[in-house]
Design a protein around this nucleic acid. Structure first.
Length: 303
DNA sequence: AACAGGACCAACCGCTGTAAT
DNA sequence: GATTACAGCGGTTGGTCCTGT
């Protein structure tokens, strides 16, 4: 039925009179400006008519994608933080390729970005391990090796959070080949120490569930709808610092207990015995030889 | 310096769900 | 209820950059 519908659409497209030539491919600065200006004046939505009214020779679909994935002001740029990577790994193990749903839990990140991350980084690891990225073995490998290392990285980061020199350098690294960004929200996030967050939370009586007055995700509030395990939310704190009109959300605490793993001895797998990763965890890479040894022994996967 | 292969990521495509008519 | 238009999702592609030889 749907095939027929698609076929009909395709056929009818053949007989459409050639109206304006629609542009495809990379967006120009001029097009971006047109789109930004139009949306700032008229709001988003009704993408097909928006494209026409804005004077863009693009499909509505293309405009929507450009806006949502690139131009929208609250989009967060730069490398995914270890916290975000951890969240992606966990949520993917829970929801699979529900990219938009996963993206809802990562404020400022787009489904496209998360999908790209998964395909380029995570699936690469699966390929190196010669396992299916959806297999139980791979999920276990992630839980036992990748996640603990990300947690370590996060701990390291949190100990450096109040070091101004590092904070300025370390936060979201500008991605290559991106044009200069104009949004105030694209500045690097300002991280704070978890314990300070909790201290502030208790001392200020802040309702953390309603911190979204600036339009950022309220994870704990949405948790039920999203199906996020409660304990995950309990272990995630946000930095809602406001600086120079820039509202940041930063997950600053994410404890392993939140993963619902019955694994009581995660620490056993921490680094020293099976140091399977390169130093730089933002571009994590398995030491395949070692992992192969481990894989052959089959101990680590509990299979 | 030149080239090849890989990695990254923006953009496109096909499909489905849904609201409007 | 049928049809149409649109929004949104996930998969895929292709151009550009990076890295190793």
């Amino acid at each position: 039925m749907s095939d027929n519908r698609t076929l009909f659409k395709s056929l009818s497209n053949l007989y459409e009179e050639p109206s304006i030539e629609l542009r495809r491919g990379p967006w120009t600065l001029e097009e971006d400006n047109l789109l930004i200006h139009y949306i700032s004046c008229n709001g988003e939505g009704r993408w097909n008519s928006l494209a026409k009214c804005a004077g863009l020779k693009r499909t509505g679909k293309s405009c929507r994608l450009r806006w949502l994935n690139y131009l929208k002001p609250d989009i967060k740029r730069g490398d995914l933080t270890p916290q975000e990577q951890l969240l992606i790994l966990e949520l993917h193990s829970k929801w699979g390729n529900r990219w938009s749903k996963i993206a809802e839990c990562l404020p400022g990140r787009t489904d496209n970005e998360i999908k790209n991350y998964w395909r380029t980084r995570v699936q690469k690891q699966a390929r190196q391990l010669k396992v299916d990225s959806n297999s139980y073995k791979f999920v276990e490998a992630i839980r036992r090796f990748w996640m603990p290392r990300l947690l370590e990285k996060m701990e390291q980061n949190s100990s450096l959070m109040f070091s101004p020199s590092i904070d300025n350098q370390n936060s979201t690294t500008p991605s290559t080949n991106r044009p200069p960004l104009t949004s105030p929200c694209l500045k690097s996030s300002n991280r704070v120490n978890t314990s300070d967050l909790h201290r502030e939370k208790s001392s200020t009586n802040l309702n953390w569930d309603s911190l979204d007055s600036v339009g950022n995700l309220m994870l704990s509030e949405n948790a039920e709808n999203l199906g996020i395990p409660e304990q995950i939310c309990d272990n995630i704190a946000y930095d809602h610092s406001v600086q120079n009109d820039c509202h940041n959300v930063d997950i600053t605490s994410y404890e392993m207990s939140a993963f619902g793993s019955e694994d009581t001895s995660m620490s056993e797998f921490r680094v020293s015995e099976f140091d399977l990763f390169s130093e730089d965890l933002t571009c994590t890479s398995w030491n395949t030889d070692e992992l192969w040894e481990f894989r052959k022994s089959d101990q680590g996967f509990g299979v």
